[in-house]
Design a protein around this nucleic acid. Sequence first.
DNA 1: AGTCTACTTGCGACAAATCGCAGTAATCCC
DNA 2: GGGATTACTGCGATTTGTCGCAAGTAGACT
Lengths: 150, 150
Amino acid sequence: MTHHRLNYVEALHAHGYRVTPQRVTVLDAVCRAGGHARPAQILALAREGDLHIDRSTVYRSLEVLVKAGLVLTAPGESGIDTLYEIVQETPHHHLRCTVCGRETELDGESAARLFENLERETGYRLTGDHLMLTGVCPECQASSNNQVVE
Amino acid sequence: MTHHRLNYVEALHAHGYRVTPQRVTVLDAVCRAGGHARPAQILALAREGDLHIDRSTVYRSLEVLVKAGLVLTAPGESGIDTLYEIVQETPHHHLRCTVCGRETELDGESAARLFENLERETGYRLTGDHLMLTGVCPECQASSNNQVVE
DNA sequence: AGTCTACTTGCGACAAATCGCAGTAATCCC
DNA sequence: GGGATTACTGCGATTTGTCGCAAGTAGACT
Ligand SMILES: [Mn+2]
Ligand SMILES: [Mn+2]
Ligand SMILES: [Zn+2]
Ligand SMILES: [Zn+2]
């Protein structure tokens, strides 16, 4: 999905933010980055569109775009860096295998049931719809069974 | 739980890491920090124990301690900073209210049941046991119902 | 179109985090 | 205990991220 398909003008205004060329540039950069992208990559892509955009502007734009619900964040592999991603048409989550690093997408539908139960138990209305779950994928489970005797 | 109750020597060795005074100092700092702590706080606490410990050593130690399973990470409120926490006796998760900022703990036991479905569906064995879920707490839902007509 | 106002940008300075490397020390094996 | 091996630390240099402020401009109103 490109950002042309989402009404970013409305989204920004709805949150009291102004629509500036820089913010559009950054939104475009996040789009073009494809999946989960690091700030460095976004900065580089943003400068393809605007040669002189400042680094602090990129960071501040990301913050605004996240608050406006146009961009999602996810923790990187190390757990210490943040990845950015353009919001999808439908919510999704991720499963990351801690052994091989492979990632699987999990559609919002199958997670929805999990959330319902959680909501019943806790009374919270859950809104965070971009989880990064970690575990061991089927393949890695199989290969570790061959090597490790438990 | 203090780190004295967890066998950090074994945990480090099991992962091929050496036990150094600096790592013990950092582990101790994470312990004494109590809940979720920022790197700056951990650095400060670490320097109470070791006046000359270097900043880079603290960061590298945290990385090692996380990999050894002795320390957990969680995304901070902004979604861009990382918080550290000593591993608990029993796994737990967090629910953060995006309105009032209040946080609730969710014990791992009740969450694990909910993950079972997901494990069945995906084949993954889910091991990541320190999620930060976001939503709106019951209190904030109630007060928003009084103010906003839907 | 022109004016006003508040939000936003770019800049410079600063702080936080990362990296390579040379010296140091934890572990292993005798 | 003593010596060899190799991971680890501290340091300096660099990169990445943050902040305050003056200049610029988006949006509102006329
Ligand atoms: Mn994603
Ligand atoms: Mn926690
Ligand atoms: Zn795997
Ligand atoms: Zn609340």
